[in-house]
């Protein structure tokens, strides 16, 4: 065997080993979700469920208002994402194309918000929303996330790569800014917009600290908060906890598999913001 093929084998061996470490927790989640309560307490643990308990998913689903959590999460995710994309497109267009007084000052002020840890803002935001009577409503879960300057900044960079000639040509043809934005710029920037939307969907679906603080009734909980609360009821019934975890994990894995290209492009950009 040549030296080259030995190193190739070693390479794949290391990557496979790493891959196994990455995937095992997910497999273990599904395996446990299919066990009976007594089988989860076997020593040593059984690697394949002796008698797959598909009913565990239904049991877990009914053990807490997961339908409600699921609908809350979905509703919040959809509204937040659509809203954020609209405010982002409008804001990015103004910063990329329009001239106005105070442009630089506003831009720098907004840039400053990107380096502030959002955990710090939870306290005043909680106070603001309480004063507005919005705690424990959908508004509390949605409104603060309707704009993200990171998204505006990213999209502005994309908008700025669109040649000026296109804009002036459209102007000469008598096209309004509004029409130009939605009919020409937005379609040309589709991949950035989809990347931002996907990242926001994942972020919204998985967010935990804010929804936990901003809601106080079972009816308003999102899936992560509901799942966390469910641990108190389920106790050590790990087969049910794992079944519930599977239910919350699957939708994002599906989105991920379909939109992987955009997610990776988005993450690369989000990392590059520094």
């Amino acid at each position: 065997m040549t030296k080259k093929s030995i190193s190739k084998i070693l390479l794949y061996f290391i990557l496979t080993l790493g891959g196994i470490i990455m995937i095992v927790p997910f497999l273990w989640m599904i395996v446990t979700a299919l066990k009976t309560g007594s089988e989860t307490a076997k020593i040593p643990p059984t690697l394949i469920p002796q008698n797959p308990q598909w009913g565990n998913f239904i049991k877990a689903w009914n053990a807490a208002p997961f339908l409600r959590y699921f609908l809350n999460s979905t509703f919040v995710m959809i509204v937040t994402t659509i809203g954020q994309i609209i405010t982002t497109i409008l804001g990015a267009f103004a910063f990329a194309r329009l001239e106005f007084y105070g442009k630089k000052t506003i831009f720098i002020l907004c840039m400053a918000t990107m380096m502030v840890p959002s955990e710090m803002l939870i306290i005043p935001n909680f106070v603001t929303l309480s004063k507005l009577g919005m705690i424990n409503t959908y508004a509390a879960l949605i409104v603060p996330w309707l704009a993200s300057f990171f998204a505006v900044f990213t999209l502005r960079q994309t908008f700025m790569t669109i040649p000026d000639e296109l804009y002036y040509a459209a102007k000469i043809d008598g096209t309004s800014d509004w029409y130009f934005l939605w009919r020409i710029i937005v379609p040309l920037s589709k991949s950035t917009i989809v990347a931002l939307a996907t990242l926001e969907m994942i972020g919204s679906w998985n967010s935990f600290m804010w929804p936990m603080i901003a809601t106080n009734s079972d009816k308003m909980r999102t899936l992560p908060v509901g799942l966390s609360a469910f641990t108190t009821d389920a106790g050590t019934q790990y087969q049910l906890l794992m079944a519930a975890s599977t239910i919350i994990v699957i939708p994002m894995i599906v989105i991920y598999v379909f939109l992987q290209k955009y997610i990776i492009a988005g993450v690369t950009r989000s990392g590059l913001k520094g």
């Binding site: 679906w205 992560p224 975890s245 919350i248 994002m252 997610i263």
Partner: peptide
């Protein structure tokens, strides 16, 4: 794991 809920 990046797309998966931290709670899960």
């Amino acid at each position: 794991p990046f797309v998966t809920s931290t709670v899960a």
